[in-house]
């Protein structure tokens, strides 16, 4: 198992390192990401969204739906921790059986 994993990872190292030339150079102002979608954010966001901070404009307006998802992720994490850690001690657990629902009696 570990042998296979290490071979796979060596392969990944090889593949990654030999194909970096396909990526845009760092700092290149003419790479695909800087030329295709983002110019509109930079040029028009103040006019269109009233926010001179482009990141805020993208985050909260152009891609505001992503941010709703992101906030939901945080809320989900809060729910998850609360479910896992707090409710183990609620009075409804009579016999210390640490399952949310009728879980394994073999615990």
């Amino acid at each position: 198992m570990k042998l296979i994993a290490s071979v796979a990872m060596l392969c990944m190292v090889g593949i990654f390192f030999t194909t970096t030339a396909g990526l845009p150079q760092i700092y290149n102002p003419h790479s695909a990401p800087s030329e295709h979608v983002s110019p509109r954010y930079i040029e028009k966001s103040t006019k269109e969204t009233g926010s001179p901070n482009f990141v805020t404009a993208v985050l909260a307006d152009y891609r505001g739906y992503d941010t709703l998802g992101e906030t939901t992720v945080i809320f989900t994490a809060g729910l998850a921790t609360a479910l896992l850690l707090r409710s183990r001690r609620t009075p409804s657990f009579k016999n210390e059986q640490a399952c949310l629902v009728k879980g394994d009696p073999d615990e």
């Binding site: 800087s34 954010y41 990141v55 404009a57 992503d66 994490a77």
Partner: peptide
């Protein structure tokens, strides 16, 4: 557009940071 760095990856990565925190 040439005067500012690309804001889109920053906005995306704010989301990714939050996800990793969660």
């Amino acid at each position: 557009a040439g005067h500012y760095i690309n804001p889109l990856p920053h906005a995306l990565m704010l989301t990714a940071i939050v996800v990793s925190l969660a």
